[in-house]
Structures are given as structure tokens and as C-alpha cells.
């Protein structure tokens, strides 16, 4: 199961280090595929309906629906690259490395539930959450914001794996629905920002600041 987690972390790194937006979207979709394999494996049985249902739902939302939506708005917005991230891509990768160090060195001391899940799960989840957060901070295009949010959400999904035995299915479905609605709203917003301002740079939001 560890190869899945390693794959998830690696895809997060690819997103962190690539400037092309379409490859970012593809990586998010790939991450979604890797994540949806996890629930049945953690449940321990491939025929368990709870795990299968969760897998199918997250595959549908994370791998198909959201990337398609993002690709469409990318095409509409006519941009290909994140031109000027606050932190350059090289430094982003370095920061990602630091995040991995913090996450993997710290987790053993955290009071986490023990259970039938791989030991790498918690540090991997932490890493992905922090990388998502870092993406949110360092990128300016509205689409990369959505991608950062997705990566963060995927990290939270990984955390959720530790509780998959205790949590009722409804809670997880609720989280997925939440994500879907969030991205949907963001997609609409990107569309409107693009229509109104002719670009999707969130830096322009500064003009909304209160007059002093």
C-alpha cells in the first residue's frame, strides 16, 4: 500500500514544480486515481461496499468531474502557465522538501489513532495538506488556487483513511459533496472573474481594499 502513498506525495511534488497548468490538472486527476484505490485497500476487502462506494464516488469527482471542469475553464481563460509565482518553482520544491522533513520527523510524537493502516499514512497526509496549503499561498492564478485547494483536500481525505472504520459513510459523502460544490463555485467564479476583468489574476482583488 505504501507505493500508493508515495505516488500521492510524488504527484503533489510534480504539481509544486511544474509551471504548465494543464499538466497540473492532469497530476491532480492522477492523484485522485491513486486516492480512490486507497479506501478498499484500507478496509481490507475489495468486496466491501462501503469502501467500493467511496472509491467510485471519489474517482467520479476527483478524477473525472473536477479536472474536466478545470480544463474547460482553462481553455476559456486562454492561459497556459503560472507566470509569476511568489516563490520560484525551485524554491517551491525546496520548501516541499522541508515540509516532508517536518511531517515525517514529527508524526511519531503526535498522538494519532493506531489502526490497520500503513504507518506512512499520517506523514503522507500531513505532507500533502501542507503542500496544498503552500500552493494556495504561493500561486496567484485562480486556477492554481483551485488546484491548491484540491491538493489540500486530498490530504484531508488521506487523514480520513485513519477513521474509515469508525466514520459513517454519510460523513465522507458529505465531505466529497462539499469539495464538489466548492470547486463548482470556484469554477463559476473563475468564469465570472475572467469575463469581468479579462484575466484571472487574484492580485487584482487588491482593488477591493477598504479606502483609508
Amino acid at each position: 500500500m505504501d507505493w500508493l502513498l508515495v505516488g500521492v506525495v510524488l504527484t503533489a511534488f510534480v504539481i509544486l514544480g511544474s509551471s504548465r497548468l494543464d499538466s497540473c490538472i492532469r497530476m491532480v486527476a492522477l492523484q485522485g486515481v491513486l486516492l480512490s484505490i486507497l479506501p478498499p485497500m484500507v478496509r481490507g476487502s475489495l468486496l466491501d461496499w462501503h469502501g467500493l462506494f467511496l472509491a467510485a464516488a471519489s474517482l467520479a469527482i476527483k478524477t473525472v468531474a473536477i479536472p474536466v471542469l478545470l480544463a474547460r475553464s482553462l481553455k476559456q481563460a486562454k492561459i497556459k502557465r503560472e507566470v509569476e509565482p511568489t516563490v520560484s518553482l525551485h524554491y517551491s520544491l525546496l520548501a516541499g522538501g522541508a515540509i516532508v522533513v517536518i511531517a515525517f520527523s514529527g508524526f511519531k510524537l503526535l498522538p494519532v489513532p493506531t489502526g490497520p493502516f500503513p504507518t506512512l499514512l499520517i506523514p503522507a497526509a500531513l505532507t500533502v495538506v501542507f503542500i496544498g496549503f503552500f500552493l494556495l499561498i504561493s500561486r496567484f492564478k485562480a486556477i492554481t488556487q483551485v488546484i491548491g485547494f484540491l491538493v489540500l483536500e486530498n490530504g484531508v481525505f488521506l487523514f480520513g483513511m485513519t477513521l474509515i472504520r469508525d466514520f459513517p459513510l454519510t460523513v465522507e459523502m458529505g465531505v466529497l459533496l462539499d469539495l464538489w460544490v466548492g470547486v463548482f463555485v470556484m469554477g463559476i467564479m473563475i468564469h465570472h472573474i475572467h469575463r469581468t476583468f479579462d484575466h484571472i489574476d487574484t492580485k487584482a482583488m487588491a482593488s477591493l481594499k477598504d479606502a483609508e
Binding site: T86, I102, G106, L109, L110, F130, F133, F134, L136, I137, S138, R139, F140, T202, K203, M205, A206, L208, K209
Partner: peptide, 22 residues
């Protein structure tokens, strides 16, 4: 003015809390 700055504040706080907690 940028939402990214606020996110950065939150991020730094969370990391610090994690480190303190650990």
C-alpha cells in the same frame, strides 16, 4: 490586500503549532 498573505499567516501559525505540539 492579497488573500495569499492571509493564508500564509495561517500556514505559518499551523506549522508553528504543530512543531510546538510535537
Amino acid at each position: 490586500t492579497r488573500v495569499q498573505d492571509y493564508l500564509a499567516y495561517i500556514f505559518v501559525t499551523l506549522i508553528l503549532l504543530l512543531l510546538v505540539g510535537v
